[in-house]
Each structure stands twice: as structure tokens, then as C-alpha cells.
Write a protein that binds this DNA or RNA. Structure first.
Lengths: 260, 260
DNA sequence: TAGTGTGAAGACCTTCACAGCG
DNA sequence: CGCTGTGAAGGTCTTCACACTA
């Protein structure tokens, strides 16, 4: 049995599983607060919004922490998941770009709790540098490398305008950071020892719009399977197609939805 | 060939493809702005940060819009993708919860462009109701259903504290909304004709922390495959394990990282 | 000839269903 | 008995590699 456990933890928890562990953790914390001490995969799955077989398989990647016929011990699971996610240490986070979004993030409560600590704020605008936000001084971006090293920042949140993001990204990487959460609407190019995760408002909205449109089609149009496009079978783009494109309030202009 | 095209568009573009279309669109818009009129799958793939075979397969789900030996016409592809995503109409979006985050979102530029229009802001706090943000009046949450119907809102952004999110969610659904972008750190439970997408800060950070920890282990510990847990092989949680848990600055307290 | 569109192979993920254990 | 842990089956997504064509 020890055999199987070490095998399980050995190398590599599937990425899909890693992405769900925080959900389980949150659900478990809620239960712990409500005084629940034991939970079945079924109940925990419901609380986390997943299928219970999936939950069991996910947990089995961490080890065999349940008790057959009983369920999982809430506190113990919390500890194991926290440990696996690296939340038993705390991580110094820097936020770069203190515009609307950066400010909101700095003040965001759920940040500070749970193993993350905002350790530095940066901006390029002399107007903002020196401001006091969420108990922190906004530093000038020139200090980036020095401060990151000094305060041992290991995770950086990029909340700059799109145009600045790649440059900022390169600089934090050269300062030794390998984990980046990017709010700017650009694809950052990095070498593959660097982890980038991206949060992108307009992409999420566009995905919703796609499905919303589908639903609308299904209602009115029914399964009509309407004609393909405005008939211009060859590639030449007839002026009126582009015209109709232009007349839509903003199909193309300024994608650079600034992240600040 | 027309046969194949209609088949392709017929039912269902894979979800993974839908999630990437906005990326392609953004890359294409950048190119169009720079005056590029034609692009190969290879170049577009690089710009969007994906593999070119994947890009071609993705685009093939929309139809056969490329020219062999040449590439894709930038403007035409922009039109087709915009159309597929439903961006040739514009969508009225409401933001609920005008705290830090809600404010930042309301002021977020990339929102307004590109087919989305913030049509209403709501909050429960009488203190904020009546405020003027980004050219909009903040309405009281009591007006929710009426205003949503009146202004034909079809996408709702929830930026309330966690505790309020489910209730708000139920109300917007009862008002006929079926597309929700949720920033509150809770799993919303909805019937499956409703699309919910979720943006969750602390989950993203936790995923980064996981990988960061792995990288750190690999460095120092090397491939040591250290001993499992603090030796307590049975489920009984030895007091010192819990003790060490408690001593960590915040492994558990207040997960309710309020979204405002 | 350069580059798309796509079968086929394979990696990854989910779900089922049940053996096996506490 | 009840519930976990997991083989096996079935999906979905990615990637390769090349036939095909403008």
C-alpha cells in the first residue's frame, strides 16, 4: 500500500486535476467552518460542482486519503491539498501596473489570505509612484529587478496596458521570476520553464457571446441551417461585406483593451 | 465541397476551438492594423501562441476560408470569426456589484470595444447607488429584473461578494439571462441551459504556486522523492500536524476572498 | 511550389461500474 | 453495508504527416 501511494504521488499530477484542487479546497474550507468533520466524495463533489468519480480520481492522485465506507476527513484533506498546492508556505506576489485593475487587485481581500502576500506594487507613471495602496508604496518600475530580488517575489501579476506587457514580462523573467499571472490582453512569449496563466475579460465575454448566439439561433431560426455567408464564394471581399463590418459599432477597432 | 463546408459548420464547433477563436481574432486585428493583408497558418499560429496544425484544424471547423499555397485573407477571416463568435451584433452587459473590482471592470476599456456595451450597473449598498461610473448610473439591486428586461441585457457579470453571488445569480436567471461571467469565488449552481464562466484570482494563483513549488523541489531537493507525509500512516491526525497547519499564516481562514 | 485541409495516431481527460475494504 | 479507489471504455483534444490544390 505504501507502494501504491508513492507511485501515485511519484511524478506528475494531471494538469486538469491541479486546476480543480483549489475548488475542492474551497469547498472543504467551507465545510470545516461549518463544523463538518467528515465528507463523502459525493457530497464534496456536489459542493465543488463536479462529478464524484472525477473527484475520487483526482484525490487518488495525491494518495489514498479516504476511508472506505466513511469518506474523507475534512481537516486532513485540507492539509494534504494545501500542501500539494504549496500553500503551506507563503508566496510573495508583486503587482505591476496600478491602474484601475491593479488597484482592485491590490485591495482584493482573497489575495492576502491563503498563502499569498502582496509584497510590491509597481507603475511607470510618476504620477502614481509613491501612492499608498493597500498599505504598500507604489514603486517605480525602474526598481523592478532590485525589489523583486530583495523581497523574494516569486509570482508576478501583470496588470499593465497591453503594449507594455511583453517588456515587463521579459524584465521580471530576467529577475528570476518563473510564474506569471497575466491580465493584459496579449499572448506573452516566454521560454517553457516559465509558467504563464492568463485572465482575459474580453475572451470570456466572446465565448459567452458565441453560446448566447447559438441559443438565440436555436430559438428563432430553429434548425434552419441558413445559407452560409453573404454570397461571395471566392475570396474577393465585396465592398458591402466590409461595409457592413464597418457599420457594426466596433467589430475591429482597438482590440487593445487596456488592462488598466 | 459546398457539401463539406455545410457539414463542417453544421452542428457544434468544439469548445476548445471556440475558446481560441478570440485569440486568433486579436492576432488578426493586430495584423490588419499593421496593414498585413494575407497570413499563413504558421505566422498566425505564432502570433496567437499555438501550434499551426491546431490553428488550421480550428479554422477548418468554420469552413474552408484559406487559399492553398497562399494563406488566409486577414480581413475576411476577421469577418468570419467575428460572425461566428456573434460579434457582429452588440451585446448589452450588466455588472452587478460595484466594489473595487466592479468599478475596475466598468472602466475597463476593452469592454466597450468589440461588440460589448456596459448597459447597467447594480449594487445593494445605498451608499453607492446613484454614483456615476463610466458614464452610467449605479442602480439599486431591487431594479435588477426590471432594468435587465428593459435594456435587453443578455450577459451579466457578477462582481459581488461571495456570499451574495448565488442569490444574484438566481435572480438574473429568473429575469431571463442565460450567460454569466462570475468573478465571485463560489461555484454557482445553475441549470444546464445557463452558461457560466468563472474568473478566479485565487485559483489561478494556487495553480501557479503548485508549479512554482514543483520547480523549487526540483532545484534543491533534486529527484529525491522524499518521504510521504509527516509520519502518521493512519488517519488519526496527530496534534503536531494540525499544529504546524495552524502556525502557517493562513492556510485556511476566510476563503471568502470577496470579489469586491 | 507553398501552404491548406484532414485522416489517422496518440495523448489526455471523463465517466462508468464494480471490486474490495473498513 | 457504504463508500473509496481504480481498471476499462469512451470522449475530446492535439499533433503528425501528407494528399491535394490554387
Amino acid at each position: 500500500m505504501t507502494r501504491r501511494l508513492s507511485q501515485a504521488r511519484e511524478r506528475g499530477i494531471p494538469e486538469a486535476t491541479v486546476a480543480r484542487l483549489p475548488l475542492y479546497l474551497r469547498a472543504l474550507n467551507g465545510m470545516a467552518e461549518r463544523g463538518v468533520s467528515t465528507v463523502s466524495s459525493e457530497d464534496l463533489a456536489v459542493a465543488a460542482g463536479v462529478n464524484s468519480a472525477k473527484l475520487r480520481k483526482d484525490l487518488s492522485h495525491l494518495g489514498s486519503y479516504g476511508t472506505r465506507g466513511v469518506g474523507y476527513d475534512v481537516e486532513y484533506l485540507i492539509y494534504q491539498i494545501s500542501r500539494e498546492l504549496g500553500l503551506t508556505q507563503d508566496w510573495a506576489v508583486a503587482i505591476i501596473g496600478v491602474g484601475n485593475l491593479g488597484r482592485a487587485l491590490a485591495n482584493y481581500g482573497g489575495f492576502v489570505s491563503r498563502g499569498f502576500r502582496v509584497a510590491a506594487l509597481f507603475d511607470a507613471d510618476p504620477e502614481v509612484v509613491g501612492d499608498h495602496i493597500a498599505g504598500l508604496n507604489v514603486e517605480h518600475i525602474d526598481e523592478l529587478e532590485a525589489v523583486i530580488r530583495r523581497r523574494d517575489v516569486s509570482i508576478v501579476v501583470i496588470a499593465t496596458p497591453a503594449a507594455a506587457a511583453q517588456q515587463v514580462c521579459d524584465r521580471v523573467i530576467s529577475a528570476g521570476v518563473t510564474s506569471i499571472l497575466n491580465f493584459a490582453p496579449v499572448v506573452l512569449s516566454v521560454s517553457d520553464d516559465v509558467d504563464v496563466r492568463k485572465v482575459d475579460l474580453s475572451i470570456e465575454l466572446q465565448i459567452l457571446a458565441f453560446h448566447e448566439q447559438r441559443k438565440a439561433d436555436r430559438m428563432s431560426g430553429g434548425p434552419v441551417m441558413a445559407e452560409e455567408w453573404p454570397k461571395s464564394v471566392d475570396l474577393s471581399i465585396s465592398p458591402d461585406v466590409l461595409g457592413s463590418l464597418g457599420s457594426v459599432p466596433s467589430v475591429r477597432p482597438t482590440d487593445d483593451g487596456e488592462a488598466r
